[in-house]
Design a protein around this nucleic acid. Structure first.
Length: 600
DNA sequence: ATAGGGTTAG
C-alpha cells in the first residue's frame, strides 16, 4: 500500500486551502463509508471520493475497511517503527508503518505520535493529513500527545491555521503543546502571534520551560520592541535558572546581536560555560552582522582549536566577515577548507562565497562559483547580480537578470534593488525607469524605500534633480538619511545650490551629529564662489564641536571600540589604543550617537 | 515507549 506518495504541488496547494475542512469531511465520510462498506460493497462511492481528493485509492479502501484485531506481530512492528524514527530513518519508519497498516493492524497512540513526527521531519503533509483522518476515525483525537504532534506537523508545514485549530480544540494543554504552537508561529515568521500566545500561556497555570523560552526569544527578534521584550525575557531566564541552557542562550545572543547590542550578546556568550556548535555559530554570525569581522574570524579559529567542527552556518557567517573586511587571502583559505567537506554545494555557503569574491574584487571567481552551483535560488542569483552591479559591470548584471527571468524564477524586491543599482552604476537612466515599471506591472511587486532610493540616485546622478526631488515628494515614504545623502551628493556634482541647501538641512535633522552634510554643503558653496556662506558653515561646525574631517567617524569608532574591547591585552600597544578608543567612545555616546541596524 | 527549542546567504 502506498500512502500519499504523490506530492504534486497542485495537491499540496489545494489541501493547504481547505485541509481543516478536508479532514473533517474525511472523518464523517469514513464513518458513513465504513457502514456502507460492510453492508454492500459500494466501492464506487469510495473511489469517487478518492479521485476527488487525488489520493491513492487503495489507502482509502483500507481506511474504510474497518478495524482488525490485534496481531501477534504488532509489538514487534511498532517497536521497529519507533527504533527507526529514533535513529533518524524517517522514511523507513513510515514504510514500516505502511506495512503495519497493510496487515490491518490498528496502531497504538504511541505509534501515531512517532509517525506524525516522522511526517513533520520529512515535511510529508499529504501523509500527515491522511493519518490525521485516521486518528479521528479511530477516536484518538483527544490524546494530548497526538494533538501536540499534530500541532508540530502543521507548524512545520507552515499551516498555522490548522495548527491553531487543533490547538484550540484540545481539551487541555501542557508545556509541550503550548511550546509547539508558539514555536510554530515563531518559525513561520509570525513573531507577534508567538508573543501573544506566550502571554496567553502565562495566564494559565502551565509554566514555560527552557524550550518555551528558546522559541519565544527567537520570536521576539521579529518584534518591533525586540530589545525591550528580550531584556524582559532575559530577566525571567535568569530568575528561572535557564541561563546555562545552550539553546536559550543562543536565541538570546542572536536577538541581542540583531538589535545591534553586540556588547550584551558578547557578555551573555562569555558567561556561558559550555558552548556548543550552534551557540558559537550564533556568536560568529552576531559579530559578522555587526561588522566585527575580525572578531568573527578570531572566534572561528578558536572554535576549530577547541575541536568544534564548523558547519554550513559557520561558513556562511565567516565568509560574510571576510567579504566585509575584503581579505581575499583568508576567504580563499576558508573556501578550500569547506570544499573538502562538500559545503560548497550548500546554497547559503555558495551565496556567501559569491558575495565574498565580488567584494574582494575578484568578480570572475564569483562567477565561477555561480556557474558551479547546481541548486540555484533567488538569493544566489541576486548575489551574483549585486556583485556585477557593484563591480561596475552593469551590462553583465542586466544580462544575468534577463537569464533569471528566462529560467522562470521570480525576482523579489532585493533582486530589483540589485538591478536598479546596476543601472545607476552604468548610467542607464531609461533602463532603470523601465525596470521599475516592470517590477510593478509585470512582477506585481510594490516598490519600497530601497527601490525609491535607487531611483532618486539614478535621476540625481543623471542631472535630473527636479525629477529626483519630485519622486521624493511623491513616494509613500519619508526620505531617509541615505536618500538625502545621495541627493545632496548629486546637488554638489550638478551645482544646485538651493536644492543642496535644503537637502543638507533635512539631513542634519536626521543626523545632527554627522559632519558630512556640512562638508558637502561647504563644498557646494565653494564651487559656486559663495565664500561668505562657506565661512558660515565652518563656523556652525566649530560651534557644534564637529570632529575634523580625516578622523574616524562615529561608526568606525564604535566598530573599533568593540574589536578592541574584547581583545586580549597581550599586545604592547593595546592599552594605549584602548584608552584612546574608550575616550572617543564615550564622547560619541555623549554626542547622542546610537547604533543603527544593518538593514534599516 | 509516544509530542516541543537555538544558528547561515543577496
Amino acid at each position: 500500500m502506498v500512502i500519499g506518495s504523490a506530492r504534486t504541488p497542485r495537491l499540496v496547494i489545494s489541501l493547504k486551502q481547505r485541509s481543516f475542512t478536508f479532514y473533517y469531511w474525511v472523518h464523517s465520510f469514513n464513518f458513513a463509508a465504513h457502514e456502507l462498506f460492510d453492508k454492500s460493497p459500494q466501492r464506487d462511492e469510495i473511489h469517487r471520493f478518492s479521485s476527488f481528493c487525488d489520493i491513492n485509492s487503495s489507502f482509502q479502501n483500507s481506511l474504510c475497511s474497518g478495524f482488525v484485531n490485534y496481531d501477534n506481530d504488532q509489538q514487534g512492528n511498532e517497536s521497529t517503527i519507533s527504533e527507526l524514527a529514533k535513529q533518524g530513518h524517517f522514511q523507513e519508519a513510515l514504510k514500516s508503518f505502511h506495512s503495519l497498516h497493510d496487515l490491518g493492524i490498528k496502531p497504538t497512540k504511541f505509534t501515531f505520535c512517532t509517525v506524525l513526527n516522522s511526517c513533520s521531519k520529512l515535511l510529508d503533509l499529504c501523509l500527515g493529513l491522511q493519518i490525521h483522518a485516521r486518528i479521528i476515525q479511530i477516536g484518538y483525537e483527544d490524546n494530548l500527545f497526538i494533538n501536540s504532534a499534530l500541532v508540530g506537523l502543521y507548524s512545520k508545514c507552515d499551516m498555522m491555521v490548522d495548527a491553531r485549530n487543533v490547538f484550540y480544540r484540545m481539551r487541555n494543554h501542557d508545556q509541550v503543546s503550548w511550546t509547539s504552537i508558539i514555536t510554530g508561529f515563531a518559525q513561520n515568521g509570525h513573531g507577534k502571534e508567538a508573543l501573544v500566545l506566550f502571554k496567553e500561556m502565562l495566564e494559565t497555570s502551565i509554566r514555560p520551560d527552557c524550550f518555551t523560552f528558546t522559541s519565544v526569544i527567537s520570536a521576539c527578534t521579529q518584534s518591533e520592541a525586540a530589545l525591550e521584550e528580550a531584556a524582559l525575557l532575559h530577566v525571567h531566564v535568569i530568575k528561572l535558572g535557564f541561563e546555562q541552557n545552550s539553546s536559550v542562550i543562543s536565541s538570546l545572543v542572536d536577538c541581542y546581536s540583531k538589535c545591534g547590542k553586540i556588547d550584551r550578546a558578547i557578555s551573555v556568550f562569555n558567561s556561558t560555560l559550555e558552548k556548543d556548535t550552534i551557540l558559537v555559530n550564533t556568536m560568529i554570525a552576531g559579530y559578522s552582522q555587526n561588522l566585527l569581522g575580525e572578531e568573527a574570524l578570531r572566534l572561528f579559529t578558536k572554535m576549530r582549536k577547541d575541536g568544534l567542527c564548523p558547519t554550513d552556518y559557520t561558513f556562511g557567517s565567516v565568509l560574510n566577515a571576510c567579504g566585509s573586511l575584503t581579505i581575499l587571502q583568508q576567504g580563499r583559505q576558508i573556501h578550500s577548507l569547506l570544499t573538502k567537506t562538500g559545503s560548497d554545494r550548500n546554497v547559503f555557503v555558495a551565496s556567501s562565497l559569491i558575495d565574498m569574491y565580488s567584494k574582494c574584487g575578484t568578480i570572475d571567481e564569483a562567477r565561477k562559483i555561480f556557474d558551479q552551483t547546481i541548486q540555484r535560488n533567488n538569493v544566489l542569483w541576486t548575489s551574483m547580480i549585486t556583485g556585477y552591479a557593484q563591480s561596475g559591470r552593469g551590462e553583465d548584471a542586466l544580462e544575468l537578470f534577463e537569464n533569471l527571468v528566462r529560467e522562470g524564477l521570480k525576482p523579489d524586491r532585493i533582486c530589483f534593488t540589485a538591478v536598479l543599482t546596476a543601472c545607476n552604476h552604468g548610467g542607464f537612466l531609461d533602463k532603470g525607469i523601465e525596470y521599475l515599471n516592470k517590477m510593478k506591472t509585470y512582477f506585481g511587486l510594490v516598490p519600497e524605500l530601497d527601490q525609491f532610493a535607487c531611483m532618486v540616485d539614478l535621476y540625481g546622478r543623471n542631472g535630473h534633480l527636479r525629477k529626483a526631488r519630485e519622486l521624493m515628494e511623491e513616494m509613500p515614504f519619508e526620505p531617509n538619511a541615505v536618500i538625502w545623502t545621495s541627493f545632496l551628493g548629486s546637488c554638489r556634482v550638478h551645482r544646485e545650490v538651493e536644492l543642496g541647501r535644503e537637502a543638507a538641512k533635512q539631513l542634519l535633522k536626521l543626523e545632527p551629529n554627522s559632519p558630512a552634510p556640512y562638508v558637502t554643503l561647504a563644498n557646494i558653496y565653494a564651487d559656486a564662489g559663495m565664500w561668505e556662506e562657506v565661512k558660515e558653515v565652518r563656523k556652525m561646525m566649530k560651534e557644534k564641536g564637529m570632529r575634523k574631517s580625516g578622523g574616524w567617524s562615529w561608526v568606525e569608532i564604535e566598530q573599533k571600540f568593540h574589536v578592541f574591547s574584547v581583545n586580549d591585552t597581550s599586545h604592547p600597544q593595546m592599552q594605549e589604543i584602548y584608552a584612546e578608543l574608550y575616550k572617543l567612545y564615550f564622547e560619541m555616546r555623549e554626542a547622542g550617537y546610537t547604533h543603527k541596524r544593518k538593514y534599516v
